[in-house]
Design a binder for these strands. Structure first.
Length: 414
RNA sequence: CAGGCUGUAGUGUACCGGUUGCACGCUACCUUGGGGUGGUAGAAGUACCGGGUUCAAUUCCCGGCAGCCUGACCA
């Protein structure tokens, strides 16, 4: 994108109140705007990041045969009463002006909705297994929204639900989802730790969380420093210094951010919504379900929380709003040509043609944090300065070398 | 939900019981061009809301609301 035709407003001074890196940096760099506590707007730059994350999620969901759909955010009272979750305090009630009582709760999860839907469409073992997901805004009355995008009252979530004819089939899929989730987080630059967690009231076994070690996190996990086996502190009998249950490693206590979780639900919602199928022998059985979530906004916040330095954000390649930040010091040099060339090669470029001093552009380039920064200078007409944001290394390269470096290294990222 | 801190131009802050100063941003013009270039001129605030104390409250007190931090909670 060409910045003079794009909306971008970086801030020079920001509130000292919110102390998390992701809140500070994303607001300063103009990716997000805080409307209220725990409620954010994504500006075009930030929305591109969200879309990049969603693209990865869609690809990996597709790889495990999950289909995308979209359910309503307004969920009727009746459906919550059926599952016994109408009174759960996490929900925001919605009532029309002409009524005294609420008719709806804003969806904070969709087990009920999807179970009701598929109770009409799943009849036979031939309809199973089935996996459907959506990417949607969820609303939760968090008593304490905090840490920027890490815990919001309104947030974008990918929620996947799967339907099976047996527990064996559920757990086979459950493990596939776990692998897909780890791929997603890896592509986002994160090392996620598959963590045993509480079963909760509605599950048939322990659940699992995907935790990313980070001091800003709210969770604590006991993790093996050798093999990576981990348990959430809430349910663990392990203590720091203990020997790992799976290998000879030593257990450590770490703060972490929960970026995803998976739940083997069993028959709970199938029973509530009379979701049954006939097996090969004509017998009726309840459908066995699983549910699987990823906090898309929280994932973005976690990436920023982990990848930053004193100058700004350092985006992983696949997530960055563009690969290249292009600055021309002397407007006489035709940077537009290089911009067009790279764009045509499928390399996304932010060309900073704003009427600002060079210093300001350099600061903004670091703040916004794209993987490559290119500078065209009148001092050195044949060479292009390339700065790698990852390690702040600077090289002087010819145009051909730049193209080699960027185009050849990033053919799979478009 | 409990405890703590905070609330002053768009943003960040300062001072003050006698109605607010600065910086950034913004507008116009000039200047400058390798790390927020320098200058000139300008616009912008009923000091969150309500009540109390006082001759006088933005300042002190109480209540609300909002924000942040800690904890509890957290499919």
């Amino acid at each position: 994108m060409i910045l003079s035709n794009f909306f971008i407003k970086t801030q020079k001074n920001i509130s000292s109140e919110d102390i998390s890196y992701n809140a500070k940096l994303l607001e300063k760099a103009g990716f997000i705007y805080k409307n209220s506590s725990g409620i954010y707007t994504f500006f075009p730059l930030g929305w591109i990041v969200i879309q990049n994350i969603i693209k990865i999620i869609r690809e990996e969901m597709s790889n495990i045969g999950a289909l995308e759909m979209m359910m309503p955010a307004l969920v009727s009272k009746q459906i919550w009463q059926t599952s016994g979750r109408w009174d759960v305090e996490i929900g925001y009630e919605v009532k029309s002006k002409d009524k005294a009582d609420a008719d709806f709760v804003l969806g904070w999860t969709h087990e009920e909705v999807i179970s009701e839907i598929f109770s009409h469409f799943i009849n036979s073992y031939k309809d199973l297994p089935l996996a459907m997901y959506q990417i949607q805004t969820k609303f939760r009355n968090e008593p304490r929204a905090k840490s920027g995008l890490l815990r919001g009252k309104e947030f974008i979530m990918k929620d996947l639900y799967s339907f099976h004819s047996s527990e064996d089939d559920l757990f086979a899929y459950y493990n596939q989802v776990a692998l897909a989730y780890q791929k997603i987080f890896k592509r986002c630059g994160l090392n996620s730790i598959y963590t045993l967690a509480s079963g909760g009231a509605f599950t048939i076994a322990n659940t699992h969380e995907f935790q990313v070690i980070c001091g800003a996190g709210e969770d604590e996990i006991l993790v093996c420093s050798s093999c990576g086996y981990a348990e959430n502190k809430e349910i663990s009998n392990l203590k720091p210094g203990d020997k790992c249950l799976k290998c000879d490693g030593i257990i450590k206590l770490e703060k972490s951010i929960e970026v995803g979780n998976i739940f083997p639900l069993g028959e709970k919602y199938a029973r509530d919504f009379n979701l049954k199928f006939k097996d090969k022998n004509g017998n009726e059985n309840y459908v066995i379900m699983g549910s699987y979530g990823i906090g898309v906004g929280r994932l973005m916040g976690t990436i920023v929380e982990l990848f930053n330095d004193e100058h700004g954000i350092i985006w992983p390649k696949e997530i960055a709003p563009a690969l290249v930040y292009l600055i021309d010091i002397d407007k006489k040099i035709e940077a537009k040509e290089l911009y067009n060339y790279l764009q045509n090669k499928g390399i996304s470029v932010i060309y900073d043609d704003r009427d600002l001093s060079i210093g300001e552009k350099l600061q903004d380039a670091d703040l916004i944090g794209l993987p490559y920064r290119l500078i065209l200078s009148p001092k050195n007409k044949d060479l292009i300065e390339v700065k790698l944001r990852k390690d702040n290394k600077i090289k002087q390269l010819s145009k051909e070398e730049v193209i080699n470096l960027i185009v050849k290294n990033n053919e799979n990222i478009k």
